Amino acid sequence: MKSTRTERLIRMASRFLVAPSRQISLTGLSEQFQVSKTVISDDVAIIDRSMREEGIGGICVERGRTGGAFLRPRLSREYRRSFLGSIAETLSQDNRILPGMLIHYSDILFNPGFAGPLGYALASDFADREPDVVMTSEVKGIPLAVFTAHALGIPMAVCRFRNRPSDGPAVAVHYPSGRGEVRTMFMGTRFLSAGKKVLIIDDFMRGGSTAAGMLLVAREFKADVVGTGVFIAASEPARKAVSEYSALLRLERGNDGVPMVKVQD
């Protein structure tokens, strides 16, 4: 039974939103909704325009006999600043400030209502680099990396600080921590391979030693790191163990010396 155009547009848009970055066959849509590919192409153009106006991305179309379309995450500047601004305001509350220039943010990352959009924001920053896998370290970086990987339509690999028998064979990499200690990361051999394009995601960066450790893991596997995304980067110390990274938020001292969170431009 053929559906009305309104019904068809809603159903098509929902598929793009549920599975961003995953190609949907235009031929398959044409057959399912019993309309021509020309009509489907017009529908896709309407959905693309609506999503761009909403500030959440756009529909990319690959032409050809087996061509398809997918939603590429891309937050508008206004949407991004509004959402991240509300997160920064929440994290700057007095009851979240901890000793040692730290803040409490775990509840944000373990809440899908926040972690989902944050992962989408990071995905929109790196979608053009077309990574093959998202890499993070346990534990707090996992929710953020999961939603980033979902928005990019790719798998996730987790660096662990101890190897479990259930993880299978793993490669161990030693790296210096910010306190001068030598720590060890383990990466299962089933999760990463040579030539893969890796996007590193970290929840919090102070000196950058954890992100630097993940860079060493990728190098050990002969994988290519295409970017490093961070939820919150501290302004102190100014010199990090990694030279290039992109942060959503920045933790710095206010004029009164009290830590505060700001949106990273």
Rank of each mutant, 00 (worst) to 15 (best):
T136S: 10
P99Y: 09
V173C: 10
P99S: 14
T148H: 03
E138Q: 09
L75P: 06
R81I: 11
K140L: 11
F161D: 04
F161N: 08
T90F: 15
P73K: 06
L91Q: 05
K140Y: 12
A88K: 04
S106E: 10
C159Y: 02
F83H: 06
S106Q: 12
F161G: 12
L118C: 02
L102Y: 12
R72V: 14
Y79I: 10
R129A: 13
F161S: 13
S82P: 00
S92M: 07
S106N: 03
P117D: 03
Y105Q: 04
R160V: 04
D132Q: 02
A127S: 13
V134R: 00
V158F: 01
F147I: 02
F147R: 07
S86I: 06
P117I: 04
R74S: 15
V171H: 12
K140M: 11
M135C: 10
D107K: 08
K140S: 11
S106G: 05
N163V: 10
F110I: 10
Y120D: 10
L118Y: 03
F126N: 06
L118S: 05
R80T: 07
I87L: 14
A123E: 01
R162S: 15
R81C: 13
R160K: 15
L118R: 05
A127F: 09
A145P: 05
S166D: 13
P169N: 13
V146W: 13
R77I: 13
M101G: 12
D94F: 08
A151N: 04
A127H: 07
R77D: 11
E130G: 00
F114S: 11
H150R: 15
A151Y: 01
T136N: 00
R81G: 05
E130M: 01
N163E: 08
L91M: 05
L84E: 04
D125F: 11
G85N: 00
M101A: 14
H150T: 09
L118G: 01
L84N: 05
N111M: 02
F83V: 05
S124N: 00
A172M: 14
I154T: 07
R72T: 10
R80I: 01
D125M: 09
R162D: 12
R96M: 12
G153M: 02
T136V: 07
R72A: 14
N95F: 15
L98Q: 13
R160T: 08
Y79G: 01
Y105F: 15
P73M: 10
N163S: 15
G85H: 02
L118Q: 03
P112T: 07
E138Y: 01
V171R: 15
S166W: 11
N95M: 06
L98D: 07
V134F: 02
V133W: 03
A157W: 02
L122C: 07
A151W: 00
F161P: 00
I108L: 12
T90S: 13
L152E: 05
L84I: 01
G141A: 01
D125K: 08
T90G: 08
R80E: 14
G100V: 05
R81S: 15
I108Y: 07
F83M: 09
R80F: 08
P99H: 11
I97D: 04
A170K: 10
P117S: 08
M135Q: 03
L98V: 05
F161M: 14
P99D: 13
E78P: 04
G119R: 00
V133G: 06
A151F: 00
F126V: 00
R96G: 09
I103R: 07
Y120K: 05
F126M: 03
E130T: 04
L109T: 03
P169M: 09
G116I: 00
